[in-house]
Design a protein around this nucleic acid. Sequence first.
DNA 1: TTGAAAGCGCTACCAC
DNA 2: GTGGTAGCGCTTTCAA
Lengths: 346, 346
Amino acid sequence: MKKKVTIYDIARELNITVSTVSRALNDSRSISTETKDQVREMARKMNYSPNKLAASLKSGKTFTIGVIVPSARVQFFAAVIHSIELNLKAAGYGILLYQTNESLENEKQGVQTLLEAQVDGIFASLSLETSEDISHWEAVIKQGKALVLFDRTLENFNVPSVTLNDFKAGYLAAEHLLKKNFRNITFIAPPQKISIFKQRVEGYLAALRDYGAPVHENTVRYGTLSIEGGKAEIRNMMGVSPLPDAVIAGDDFTALGVIRQLKEEGLPADRVAVMGFANEVFSGFITPSLTTVEQQPHKMGAECARIFLSMVKKKNPYENPEKVVLEPILVERESTEGEARPPERP
Amino acid sequence: MKKKVTIYDIARELNITVSTVSRALNDSRSISTETKDQVREMARKMNYSPNKLAASLKSGKTFTIGVIVPSARVQFFAAVIHSIELNLKAAGYGILLYQTNESLENEKQGVQTLLEAQVDGIFASLSLETSEDISHWEAVIKQGKALVLFDRTLENFNVPSVTLNDFKAGYLAAEHLLKKNFRNITFIAPPQKISIFKQRVEGYLAALRDYGAPVHENTVRYGTLSIEGGKAEIRNMMGVSPLPDAVIAGDDFTALGVIRQLKEEGLPADRVAVMGFANEVFSGFITPSLTTVEQQPHKMGAECARIFLSMVKKKNPYENPEKVVLEPILVERESTEGEARPPERP
DNA sequence: TTGAAAGCGCTACCAC
DNA sequence: GTGGTAGCGCTTTCAA
């Protein structure tokens, strides 16, 4: 393990100064072509590798951005991360990853860690616990760092963001079922009041109203979003209330749980129409294949990158925060193909 | 956007020197408790946030490690990344992510970028293109950085690594089928000669030999690992050769493609037994559910972290490179439940 | 227990 | 077009 070679070594070897070497390496216009060539050649020969840390310390730019997500192994976030890395790499930026595991405490810790690492900006999707307490996010802005929120944001927090049109997503889902004459439609949402689900529920309720479908207190059920959570909801429903004609689950995993539990309860496959959100990889391959709403993670990552890149150019990046809203896309599959049952007459 | 507060500001405010502040903040034993308290209190009050860049430049340690993977949106890698981040965060390290998209060129670029960022170590899973040319990896070692390879490694490259027992994985898969009296078993592997598939194929062939099953030139077929690749292989087989009793696909996606194409060809679901590798999320939920081999991504990430942490303590980290080999786990499901057809008599 | 001062490797400003 | 040099914010000897 030999000592690292620096621009001083190159300068000494070539009998010029570090300023010249630095400028040559950065392709400054004020350096002659011959000097540049000499320096580059010597750098190659000496196996020089720049220390970006030193450059960053001096220049104040690290060319890394922090990405905060609840979990990198969730398909959707993995896809967004993939897209962010791809798009930002092209612009010379690196990605520092931080997972919150849905905890506000971790989220705060993440912001602090990334800030100390002097990242040029932070892209984040909020934890389920995040709501009132956003002091850590305000700190990011106060430090003059670029902040871009994606997918899970806060309603009254006026920062650049890329989200899905969640109201429309909920509306789209409900409307799809209503058009097929399903009337009793239950929505399974998580108890946490984060923006995206509030809006999906609202969109769903709006559709029910528009189509004159019944809304009662059990129309929206609050449960855990997971396979187990979906199963549990069906078990609960079997006990007390009459089964709905259709179920909209908060995500594809929950929808899968619903389908499986219905099967276990011995009900015919098309007794209850089921749909989810996210268009997970498995959703097209299960039986019945799952109708769902595509959330465009790839586009979301690309838009985050684009917004960030435009922010760094502005003098006042938060002046008119750009808020991109992506359109949800309905993906129709077998799980909602069944016939709606004729409405019950009293 | 106010000027950042540094230890100089704290020192001035408290009428002490930066050395004292630095030591107090780092909880040095040579500082009195009162001074520490004073400094910490003042730091809090002034909203001080340390600049890790400066500390790293001086100390030579960044407490970040680079993670290089083919793609972060592949389930398996996403799960490993998740695990690495979790385990390393606990030890105070951050994760710098780099995707190669299976390109050797990108992989080299990634190593260079991470090295320039002065990461303390690199965890990597090699691209499909990587084989002879490993100069970039040797550079990592020469720089005295910790290198840990996982999942996809090179046979004759003697560095710390965490892999699956791929020979056994292949053997396990074949044996599972052989025990059920399947005899004509085809293996679909990628054309690239990367270690993990070579060894899986060898394990598979060893099992065929051990059980006296036939091995001919079409026993191993080389194709693309993807849903489309799996479909294509089946189409090709339909044309020329008699269909095998069972197919072992290189991964779950390919296995899924095989299953779907068999269905499209109008064959009964249990005409050909199918299995894959990776235990993707969807594999348990498709019809028929897919028999596969679990690769333990979570454990793999944890082991990478553990090895790295032990390496940084050693004076000569590469002396006796630790090579962890994880055991593959057979996950039996419906896709291999069919009856083996009686052997054909000539 | 604290202070003074020398850098870590690079950039950028000011001279010439 | 090139040189000299002062830091960026922190750690870390060496002295006191």
